[in-house]
Design a protein around this nucleic acid. Structure first.
Lengths: 98, 98
DNA sequence: TATAAAGTTCTCATATATGATAACTTTAGT
DNA sequence: ACTAAAGTTATCATATATGAGAACTTTATA
């Protein structure tokens, strides 16, 4: 708990730096999408292999897509198909910064 | 006015057909994104050329990106950068299909 | 702790998006 | 109708995502 508080304080301080903040938000966003993809799949009780089959591709490709560390920026259509395979549509919004 | 009503009735009838409906929604979505991109740019009072400069690219590429008819499915990062250049962040949501 | 299932990583081939330039068309203002 | 600005289209080169297969690591469970 003490650790958590300390870190939290440090984080807030660091985020006052615009460059750090920007970098952080960029990561947050990437993390968000990948995270959403993964939880969407798990919510539907699918393994990577099962989803891969639905999409006529390989489990290794699903893994790559879901990998938070990969530098790949997927095509919109790829995300769309992933979502469709589980019964979802994509919605894209533009949010003003600050 | 008469024309509009007739068309509207036809449209609703046609949308009861699942295949037609799916095709329609697909188009709607594509249209939506491109439309959002265009209005975002215009809201910020930018020409394609001006935006291109901000993004260190050419106006022809902006035109291609905004072109509703093109079969290109852009990278997520491309849309992101377009938005960022005008002070917006991307938000992506998964909407259950019915 | 052995085993199977699930997920990851690497690599190469292929498909597709993006960058750049030029010529063309449309639109707006006079 | 003329002109300039804005937008479009075509094309080729380059960058990057995706497909596929194999070997590897992690996780869960008996």
């Amino acid at each position: 708990m003490m650790e958590r508080k300390k870190f939290s304080q440090f984080k807030n301080k660091a985020l006052e730096n615009p460059e750090v903040r920007e970098e952080y938000e960029k990561l947050q966003q990437k993390y968000e999408l990948k995270t959403k993809l993964i939880s969407l799949r798990k919510m539907n009780g699918l393994t990577q292999e099962e989803l891969a089959k639905k999409l006529h591709t390989q489990k290794s490709n699903i893994s790559r897509l879901e990998n938070v560390n990969s530098k790949i920026s997927p095509r919109l259509s790829t995300i769309e198909e992933y979502a469709k395979a589980m019964g979802y549509n994509l919605e894209i919004n533009f949010i003003p910064q600050n």
